[in-house]
């Protein structure tokens, strides 16, 4: 399973949205038959203006929201049949303003390892964590530093790293680059690319800005409640 970086993607979708529909409380239709296939190792970017439903889509993929109609499949199984914690131990959503528990950087990175769904997973050593923090452009951040003292950009990178430590099948990132400078963006990009190639992790990134990755597998734009390939038509890569 998985795909060669840059090569054709042959595996079955990890996540599949079929004909999703959702209407906002004010009666405005948000999704009108939205379809999406997320393949193993795929790096997908979804763009669109604020309020078009990008965040809602990510939250639906992580089972925080439910569509009025349509189906979401995870490895071929409808989400209704998958316990939330089981899904979210593999499909990890990082919010635009990621939360932190009170304590140090180290504490925050190890928080998930205390959960039942990750209990059998080996904890990374402080050396491994140090190495990964350095790769994320956080060389000056000590493991015992309080998260209260971190900048918004550092917190965001920490949240991405916390998710990566769990080796997710799919990583759902909500505006991950918005609080980062160019150098930090490059570090995160490089880290995500490494995980995508080495572990076939699928990455779905939403942004209201222009595409952040130079050569994405697919850039999809939210348009009238559906996903269309950026600069193209429906049925491009990613949108089924």
């Amino acid at each position: 399973m998985g795909s060669e970086p840059g090569g054709p993607i042959l595996a079955a979708p990890v996540l599949q949205c079929i004909d999703l529909r959702l209407t906002l409380p004010d009666g405005r239709p948000l999704f009108q038959g939205l379809c999406l296939d997320i393949l193993p190792g795929q790096y997908l970017q979804i763009v669109g203006p604020s309020g078009c439903g990008k965040t809602t889509l990510l939250r639906m993929l992580a089972a925080f929201e439910r569509p009025e109609a349509g189906t979401i499949l995870w490895n071929g199984t409808p989400l209704e049949d998958v316990p939330g914690p089981v899904l979210r131990s593999s499909v990890i959503y990082v919010a635009q303003t990621p939360g932190m528990v009170a304590g140090t950087v180290h504490t925050n990175l190890l928080v998930p390892f205390g959960f039942r769904s990750h209990r059998n997973r080996p904890q990374p050593s402080p050396q491994e964590i140090r190495h990964l923090l350095d790769r994320m452009g956080m060389k000056d951040v000590a493991l015992d530093r309080s998260v209260q003292d971190l900048s918004a950009g550092q917190r965001h990178r920490l949240a991405v790293l916390r998710a990566l430590l769990l080796h997710p099948q799919v990583l759902l990132l909500d505006e991950p680059m918005s609080a980062l400078d160019r150098e930090s963006q490059a570090s995160v990009e490089s880290m995500l690319e490494a995980v995508r190639v080495q572990e076939a992790t699928s990455i779905v990134l939403v942004s209201h800005q222009e595409p952040v990755r130079k050569r994405p597998d697919a850039v999809l734009r939210m348009h009238l409640g559906r996903l269309v390939p950026e600069g193209g038509h429906e049925n491009g890569p990613g949108s089924s």
Binding site: P85, R88, V94, A95, P112
Partner: peptide, 16 residues
């Protein structure tokens, strides 16, 4: 809510 959802999104169940 943000903190609770952060824990849920990392695989916590509602009790955790």
């Amino acid at each position: 809510r943000g903190d609770v959802e952060m824990l849920l999104s990392l695989g916590a169940d509602y009790k955790e």
